[in-house]
Computed example of a mutant assay.
Amino acid sequence: MNNVKNLNKWANAHTYLSLDLVRIALGVFLFMKGISFITNIQYLQDLISPIDKIGGGMFLIHYIAPAHMVGGIMIAFGLLTRWAIIAQLPILIGAIIVNFMGEMHSQNLLLAILILGICVFFLFYGSGKHSADYYFKMQQ
């Protein structure tokens, strides 16, 4: 618990508006990706088909899109950002693995690696000073 408090103190002391804009853009991107998956379920099924042989394909379909939508909203507003990013990590790692198991799409692979890197950064950095977490903390 002290580690999280220390990370929050460091992040609030080193907060920049540009980092908050990157966090908001990440949240909007994930939300739009979730909308894209819901409106085109067949595309999502085609994406996870290489790992569907293992099992749990229907579970993945029902986890990926809502996790992106809800997590994207939470990340954009800075509400429980670390928890929302923890929910995104298995999806992003799976996106990287799918590129190696199935047909290689270098653009999708680079995008997944970039988003994973940004998510790992915000997992440690937190939501920052311009967020709902900071606002609610100051209301106590």
Score class of each variant (00 low, 15 high):
104 M>C: 04
115 I>F: 00
25 A>D: 13
130 H>F: 10
66 P>I: 05
26 L>P: 07
88 Q>L: 15
124 F>R: 10
120 V>R: 00
54 I>W: 05
127 S>L: 04
9 K>W: 07
86 I>M: 14
14 H>I: 08
24 I>R: 03
117 G>C: 06
54 I>H: 04
122 F>Q: 09
74 M>H: 08
85 I>K: 06
41 I>D: 05
30 L>R: 03
28 V>A: 13
131 S>M: 05
7 L>H: 00
139 Q>D: 03
23 R>C: 07
22 V>L: 12
133 D>F: 04
104 M>P: 04
69 M>S: 08
76 A>N: 10
136 F>L: 15
114 L>G: 11
75 I>M: 14
121 F>K: 06
113 I>K: 00
115 I>S: 00
72 G>H: 04
52 D>W: 01
23 R>E: 09
14 H>Y: 10
107 Q>P: 03
40 N>A: 08
86 I>L: 15
134 Y>D: 12
58 M>Q: 14
80 L>H: 12
33 K>Y: 08
8 N>V: 08
37 F>W: 14
116 L>V: 02
87 A>C: 15
33 K>V: 13
33 K>N: 13
42 Q>S: 13
19 L>T: 11
109 L>P: 01
95 A>F: 01
30 L>H: 02
81 T>W: 08
95 A>R: 01
32 M>R: 00
31 F>A: 13
91 I>W: 14
65 A>L: 13
31 F>N: 06
124 F>N: 15
12 N>G: 09
101 M>I: 14
42 Q>I: 07
35 I>H: 07
84 A>D: 15
49 S>H: 02
73 I>H: 11
135 Y>G: 04
132 A>E: 00
102 G>I: 02
78 G>D: 03
9 K>H: 08
104 M>N: 02
69 M>Q: 13
46 D>N: 13
23 R>P: 11
41 I>P: 06
2 N>F: 09
3 N>T: 07
58 M>W: 05
54 I>A: 11
111 L>I: 14
81 T>S: 14
53 K>G: 10
137 K>C: 00
28 V>Y: 08
73 I>S: 12
138 M>Q: 13
110 L>K: 01
101 M>V: 15
85 I>D: 11
95 A>Y: 01
19 L>A: 10
13 A>T: 03
103 E>P: 05
62 H>R: 12
116 L>F: 05
40 N>K: 08
129 K>Q: 09
69 M>P: 07
4 V>W: 04
32 M>S: 11
18 S>K: 01
67 A>I: 11
93 I>C: 04
136 F>H: 05
68 H>Y: 11
34 G>V: 09
118 I>A: 10
73 I>Y: 12
132 A>I: 15
120 V>T: 06
71 G>Y: 14
